[in-house]
Amino acid sequence: MPAAPTPTGLDVDERCSCELGSLAGIEEHLHRRSYRPGQVLWAEGQAANRLVILDQGRIKAVTVAADGRSTLLYVFSPGSVFGLLPFVDGQPYPATAIAVEEVCTREVSYSALRSALQRDPSVAMGLLAVLGRRLREAMARVEASHRHGSWTRVAAALLLLKPRNETLPLILDIPRPRYTFAADLGLTPESLSRGLTRLVNAGVLHRLDAARVQVLDLEALERLAAGERPHDVGSDRHPER
């Protein structure tokens, strides 16, 4: 899909400004792109060449193990900036980036970004801050996926789906197809369904329909994502795969 140059003077999303610290010298290099649901922006191991600012929609980052199991590392929401790690270390993309829904982005090539950094080194501090936060969140997500039951993986994934700075009342759309979302969490569709049901029974969620849930207790969801067990769960007798 061809990229169209971003018009001069385009307003920069406030959250992007906060993440990058300074966009001086970058705006003129930004190009607009759009992606369809399920479209891959880049694949894990692919040579890296650009930084992405997400303006609309959500993009998930997943890794795939040798046995074929995938792990959801992050779900980027509007205002996110990503594609930083390869820019810093010169290595290929560490994860596959996939559009969850209709997505609009602004993108800058690494070569243009390097030129901008040479003109304004202060941009680097914002980039490093974003990179550090992404790495910490990804490591916590992977650790939780291996240490806890299905409810913890589901709770953590739902928090990733939450738009930044949004509070209650909060309605979340479960990504479709559901079996793909379950696989991203290292679960079967049945385990995903059980995890959602447990969170509903615990009073954390209210199921609106097959594709949407309402968060009733955001603080409880955050505690569960950190590994706390819902009061009604009991022993987790079912296998997670």
Rank of each mutant, 00 (worst) to 15 (best):
M1D: 02
A4D: 00
A4K: 15
L20F: 14
G21P: 08
S34W: 13
Y35T: 01
R36G: 00
V40N: 00
L41C: 04
E44Q: 15
A47T: 11
N49A: 12
R58G: 00
K60P: 00
D67A: 10
S70F: 03
T71V: 05
L73K: 06
V75K: 02
V75M: 08
F76R: 11
S80Y: 10
S80I: 00
L84S: 00
T96R: 13
I98W: 02
I98E: 04
V103N: 04
C104D: 07
C104R: 15
Y110D: 02
R114Q: 13
R114V: 01
S115C: 07
A116I: 05
L117N: 01
S122Q: 14
V123G: 01
M125C: 06
L127M: 15
L131V: 09
R136T: 06
E143N: 11
A144P: 01
H148S: 07
L160H: 14
L161P: 04
L168P: 02
D184G: 12
S191Q: 15
S191P: 05
L192N: 04
A202M: 09
L208N: 03
D209V: 09
A210V: 08
A220F: 09
L221M: 11
E222N: 09
P230Q: 08
V233T: 13
D236H: 15
D236R: 10
